[in-house]
Design a protein around this nucleic acid. Structure first.
Lengths: 182, 182, 182, 182
DNA sequence: GATGAATGAGCTTTCATTCAT
DNA sequence: AATGAATGAAAGCTCATTCAT
């Protein structure tokens, strides 16, 4: 509902109707709208975490980014929903807290992954891992933000190119890599 | 109003009250809410363009990024407003068109700047300029998205570090630069 | 509406319908339900004050009581409305304040009237005027409270008898009167 | 619940929650809300009757009034509950019937008490006993009505003074008493 | 140019009530 | 005996919009 109509146009009535129940049933399970939306946010993050965990055994920064990007085709509503939720988080405190906690966790996971990559020489080490994680996170958020507005720009080919470019950005410079190899 | 209360909590009534006029006056000048919001978006882009134009004579990618980031302290409501507008653009076509047009212009300006930088050897050239522009744009959007939610993470020091890291990401790798210099 | 259906069964919708306008029109003039009800209370008190003022030139305790009692036949909804309002006042502070202020005024007016009567020897003076005023007020409130529940008990004859009895209660005792006469 | 939040703000949900059971349990024991409220009214009257009966052996009009007034400090919720119930009785017939029956009984008990007093010469006999009973009842109801709104006016001292005044009002006038004595 | 009255639809939420379990 | 899911109506209130003035 949120993905298709937007947060502002999503009413409990419409949600109930789409869920095939009455408005009363919705408010029976969720004390109020904020609680419903917060539960939705948690569930989306859970789904995303599960997806990340699926590839935990062989942690690979490219695979992570790829999975994030493939959410687009995988579940084309994931980004639209998340961007709606994120943008409204600011005005619903209980909700903002969820976002903050979850995002911090993702960032630190990403940072430790990058840090490991730097030790192995597969990630450039001229930028601290936490800053790299912030930039990668920002790139992901930026894509997420633009996708709902200009989905046509996210063709499979372009997505692939963006992915390659992102990998290249954080790869060690050829000279440095050579130095590490020697 | 939008920055402080969020798009969903912004009504024509409140806008009128803050503007010191009646609701009727608002609807007199703007046929409907979408037109008002679209006008607001245009004006924000205009302001941003003016800011960019101010440094047009000596185009410097670092200065551009710096100006974008400094919007945070400069006009702390710029990012919150823009993120609210962007996220709602999807559901108001006339409005989405404005975004699309303006963003495309910014991206191509950024791409030509990066392209010039690549020719001069100040920007890495192992990634096509248009892809680099997309990534830089995404980073900017990502920052814009997170700032309203976690403003505390955007301390002046962190902003500076993020800026430096972004510059480093798109700088030519040491080896490549030396090769270009020779 | 309140008189006929009771406070709890009175909705803005019903009020609007009876007033021949939309719910929006009601909330346009009254910010919320409490404000509407408070305005109603004020207006009822105003009406009652006007009625009292009409006989101000020749202040006569019997006439006052008579007018209060005749409200029953005069405007048979006055008591039902007032009792509903009074009972709900406790839970709507802005509204309770109005009641308190207005009642205090009536009580003091009544007390000074009784005091004057005591000086003239037309009112018993073995009970302080303010206590007498409280008792008279309580009698009036008690009538007001019972009337809506058992209107049949308030036949014109009974009302007259109650009035006579009340007057007798506060009249000077025969002995005392004789003493005053001498 | 009714005393604290008012009749209009009392829902079966809240009652159930306070009783530590489910809404279903409430509707299991009481077919509907009116039945619950009626049962409450009966129980309150029962409690009041029990209190009156406690002093039945030595019937004393002052003691009766005193007990009624002491309900205030005894059980400070008695008056607020009763006034809420009474005022709503009008709009719930089954409930109004209970009130009518119970009140009639109290009034006749009071009237016979007063009549006996008149025979003994302890109560003024220039007003028929039934009218006196009505007035005393009205005074009690008036106090009950005002107490929830302005509890601060009912200090122990004031309550005592009101009680004394009421007794004085219905006492035989000094002259008449002397005449009866001779 | 601007007002302010008014509309009517829609919102979130609360509620009494029903009923299968 | 009691639960708890679910209903459907109604509540107070907000809103974008219209329009006569």
């Amino acid at each position: 509902m949120i993905a298709q109509e937007g947060y502002a146009n999503t009413s409990l009535r419409k949600v109930a109707h789409r869920a095939g129940c009455t408005t009363g049933a919705v408010t029976y399970y969720f004390a109020n709208k904020e609680e419903l939306v917060t539960a939705l946010a948690e569930s989306r993050f859970d789904g995303f975490d599960a997806m990340l965990a699926a590839g935990r055994d062989q942690p690979d920064i490219r695979a992570i980014l790829e999975r994030w990007l493939l959410r687009t085709t995988d579940d084309p509503e994931f980004w639209p929903v998340m961007s709606q939720l994120l943008v409204h988080a600011r005005y619903e405190p209980a909700f903002a807290a969820v976002i903050e906690r979850r995002y911090a966790r993702h960032r630190s996971a990403l940072a430790s992954l990058l840090s490991a990559g730097q030790a192995q020489g597969t990630i450039r080490d001229d930028i601290p891992a936490d800053l790299l994680a912030d930039q990668i996170g920002a790139i992901g958020d930026g894509w997420m933000m633009m996708f709902p507005i200009e989905p046509k720009r996210f063709t499979p080919g372009r997505v692939q190119a963006l992915l390659d470019a992102a990998i290249t950005l954080i790869a060690p410079p050829p000279g440095a890599r050579r130095a590490a190899d020697s």
